[in-house]
Design a protein around this nucleic acid. Sequence first.
DNA 1: TAAAGAGTGGACTAATTAGTCCAGTCCTAG
DNA 2: CTAGGACTGGACTAATTAGTCCACTCTTTA
Lengths: 204, 204
Amino acid sequence: MASIEIGQPLTARGKATRARIVEAATELVRAHGVANTSLDAVLAASDTSKSQLYHYFADKDDLVLAVIQRQTECVLATHESHLRKLHSLAGLRRWRDAVVELSRQTDCAGGCPLGSLVSELAESPRPRELLAESFARWEALLVAGFGAIQARSGTRRDCDLTELATVVLAALQGGLLLAQTTRSTRALELALDMAIDRVEAQLA
Amino acid sequence: MASIEIGQPLTARGKATRARIVEAATELVRAHGVANTSLDAVLAASDTSKSQLYHYFADKDDLVLAVIQRQTECVLATHESHLRKLHSLAGLRRWRDAVVELSRQTDCAGGCPLGSLVSELAESPRPRELLAESFARWEALLVAGFGAIQARSGTRRDCDLTELATVVLAALQGGLLLAQTTRSTRALELALDMAIDRVEAQLA
DNA sequence: TAAAGAGTGGACTAATTAGTCCAGTCCTAG
DNA sequence: CTAGGACTGGACTAATTAGTCCACTCTTTA
């Protein structure tokens, strides 16, 4: 009950303030991590004050939950725009190229925003639950895309699309982590190619 | 020069003290992350004092470098003991089972100690370099194992063992991250199976 | 138009943090 | 056995942090 009473802005101005706080916090967390993002830094970046922050969030953990949700929407929206129109393996390879290009544009820095949140927050129950839901939604996006490819190709092989989605996501996360470490997209490209070959073998 | 002058204990007692500090710091960092590990906590866990810590390390960053090195040795030693005697695909699958079992034993918590360090430290040049070296050594271990399998099997296919090692490592890292999120080894098993199937296809 | 409550500004506290400093003890080489 | 340097204990500082509080302004509604 208390968690519902806090954080619901009732006016347009309130909504705008809350949104500014979450936006600034999300950006700072993506760049520096949760532990290295102070509330004072969030306030400065969003041009708000302590009382505003604590008017909308119970504490820092509560703000972090909102950051997870916003970051989830950002990441899923990016991938959804590519995966929605998927209907062939060539389309899947275009998605691969887009992912690689996105990583290259930031010089492989930062890795996956959701993956980074996992390794920092996975030992806290509530954040971990939210992130698990995020990855489930991400997988569902891939499953839908695989289904579309399968439907288009006509051949209906008996294979588990969910398992395929899991390994593609694992290859993506592992590839991004190695890319971040080596500052090269090579590992990401190889990992995604392997996973997509697997998709082709199972689906075609 | 200065970095060499600090941190070299000259007596047996000094070496023991330094080792106790690094060991305690490594354990705390593995459990809570770098940013959530205070020097006071390290001192309490290692039963040492501030002046001892700053006698052997220039600052916290310097201690973190030592932690990266120690954690690297721990992880590589674990895998080396499995990969050294590798001479068949069945052996590689036993390594897979051991990795999965290790993850299961900790209820999938924590993920890979080196992977976690990457997402926390990859934006700092020196730590990133060290971690890149760690992964390179890990890959070299895999390459050596693949070479042994290839030599044993007799068939000499023309394939890039380094690329294979990279994708296996990516599958391992991505699988561990998803396992940590879902608290289930399922993703790790699927990802490693995919990668090992790839090894089989390329090597056999 | 006036009351009520949503929203705001910012000073304040208490705790924790990295890092400094010095007086002292222990060990070893000459 | 003694000087010098390695090593140690712990008090101390300065900065940063999450979180509290209250007086104030804005906005809506009756």
